[in-house]
Design a protein around this nucleic acid. Structure first.
Lengths: 205, 205
DNA sequence: TCCTTTTTGTATCGATCAATACATAAATCG
DNA sequence: CGATTTATGTATTGATCGATACAAAAAGGA
């Protein structure tokens, strides 16, 4: 069925290696020679299998979202209340961002600067993924409002932006050396203020 | 007194131009040719005046801290209560991050990825400035505890990390296109939950 | 005026970047 | 087998990176 000479490397393993490297060093600071060395193949094989550095990166981000980055969001829909879901999300974030042997913080937040002059294909892919998670938060809160878990008329977009900001900031903190305990304390801070925050936001001003 | 041929450009104006460019495009995405074009001088003049790209960047960050970035932190010590100071800080952040004609978000958070493989001189300078602001928050809360504004025994480091995370995340949000209203809503969320958060954190568990 | 000092503009340095040309090797197909 | 297809390894491409060599220009000091 498959014609031609077979490749003598595992595409999945090579992609996993590239993901680790991009996550650790970021998009710009990862060179083709870094990639070919870690992935164990030569440039023509890399380009034949993945197209370009940018496309390889985007595949790596998708892999990250399905593997290392997935656990954070696993229980957003299943934890019964919005408050508990946010507390769970942020605690999982704290633990995920401080795992031994893995780069600290979120690849989607850290690995490419969202600046003018960067590769738009790469920046837009990351921005899209950040906004998708924020939209997932917003939908979760709207569902909670429908269920009576949150008061009707609560500004779901605002609290989603609040939670997303806090979670994104934890990536910076993790890279700057914050301990797991400190990040867990941040999660607890958010949970501790949650009910009062909801009550104040829901109340017409 | 000053020997030699005088320079025919303003060092301050050139530095201000470099700051704008670094803030907009980030450290890696800003090239020497970008800089010399915007600053209106040739490479030898740039190197004679600023030493290197990294040193120029660090001077630009310091300028940012004294100018565009300063307003955010101006009233941290003067606003009377910790709660009001945080609310003021975050509202100033929201406004500062969405000014017309200026890059969105904080130069100290966004302009260089805190990744392995980056210029350590640059990364460390930015990390130091982030941690200094977080330390300033922590000291402000300790002062509040001394004054009785916050309960004794409150975990000042934890709430400083919480506020810093939220503020850092707002830089990501601003770059991703969040409106001023959305960022102000984040500030209001934090303020709304503040008292309950403090009460919960202070209480021995 | 001549010497020293510093800046200027031009032209370019070696290194590294992402990406390929090319010939060879290894598989299937007929 | 020979023909086709695909992957591989070596070597290299043009572009761009940050940083300089060099000589002319413009100032002060003696």
């Amino acid at each position: 069925m498959s014609r031609g000479r077979p490749r003598n490397f595992s595409r999945d393993e090579a992609l996993a290696s590239a993901m680790q490297l991009f996550w650790d060093k970021g998009y710009d600071n990862t060179s083709l020679s870094d990639l070919t060395r870690v992935m164990g193949l030569n440039p023509p094989s890399l380009y034949a299998a993945f197209g370009s550095k940018a496309q390889l990166f985007i595949e790596a981000v998708d892999l990250y979202g399905r593997t290392d980055g997935a656990g954070i969001w696993d229980e957003l829909e299943t934890v019964p209340t919005a408050k508990a879901a946010v507390h769970d999300l942020l605690r999982r974030t704290a633990e995920n961002f401080t795992r031994r042997g893995a780069p600290r913080g979120c690849m989607v937040v850290l690995s490419a600067p969202q600046m003018a002059g960067g590769d738009p294909e790469v920046c837009d892919a990351l921005k899209l993924r950040r906004l998708e998670k924020q939209a997932a938060l917003e939908r979760r809160f709207e569902r909670a409002a429908d269920e009576g878990d949150l008061p009707a008329g609560v500004d779901c977009a605002a609290i989603a932006a609040y939670v997303a900001s806090l979670q994104h900031g934890m990536s910076i903190g993790a890279r700057d050396g914050a301990t797991r305990e400190t990040l867990l304390a941040i999660a607890d801070c958010a949970a501790a203020g949650w009910d009062a925050m909801i009550a104040a936001i829901a109340r017409p001003h």
